[in-house]
């Protein structure tokens, strides 16, 4: 049996909606597992990323952990795809780029109307937050950008099939790439 291509996925500073849309391929997931093997992904238990044909990234880069994960994906994946608006542009989490980080923390942990005896979390067990939320392509080279919040299940399905086919040009019909 020849080895199936490997696909890995990661969620950085996203809401997981893009991953949920991946699940919205519904019963096509039954044929997907004949087509590919999942490598590291929230879909399975694999902890260490192996060499993969395709990596799908959800979410932008908001903290030091996101940064490490994205760099590792770039090293191990032949084709890296920014999946959804957060990965391609930072998305809603990047709205914090307009405000100093300190103010965001103070609002949540000191000023909130339900907070008592507030303190800003600062334990060494927490990763450091970056000054801004960065889209993935500002951190590593990204091969494909898939717009949408989230992209539709049909477009993720079409893109996956295209990338695995090894063909040169992908033409997605308008319905599959339109923004909303």
């Amino acid at each position: 049996m020849t080895e199936k291509p490997k696909v890995a996925t990661a969620s950085l500073a996203g809401c997981f909606g893009c991953h949920m849309t991946l699940l919205d391929i519904d019963d096509r997931i039954l044929s997907l597992i004949d087509l590919i093997d999942f490598d590291k992904s929230p879909i399975d238990d694999i902890k260490e990323l192996g060499d993969c044909t395709v990596g799908l990234i959800e979410g932008g880069v908001s903290n030091s952990e996101n940064l490490e994960t994205l760099r590792e994906f770039r090293r191990k994946c032949t084709i890296l795809v920014s999946m959804g608006d957060c990965a391609t542009s930072g998305g809603i989490p990047a709205m914090r780029n307009t405000v100093p980080l300190k103010e965001c923390l103070e609002e949540a942990y000191l000023n909130g109307p339900s907070v008592v005896d507030g303190v800003i979390p600062n334990d060494p067990d927490l990763p450091s937050i970056l000054d801004r939320v960065y889209p993935c392509h500002e951190v590593v080279k990204i091969d494909y950008h898939l717009p949408g919040c989230p992209p539709s299940a049909d477009s993720i399905w079409a893109v996956l099939n295209f990338l695995l086919s090894g063909e040169e040009n992908l033409e997605l019909p308008y319905e599959l790439i339109k923004y909303d």
């Binding site: 903290n63 709205m95 307009t98 405000v99 965001c104 923390l105 949540a108 990763p127």
Partner: peptide, 15 residues
């Protein structure tokens, strides 16, 4: 302890 390690800042940036 169970820690939640990500922070968004929604309360502020939605203002």
């Amino acid at each position: 302890r169970m820690h939640v390690v990500e922070f968004r800042g929604f309360e502020r940036f939605i203002q």
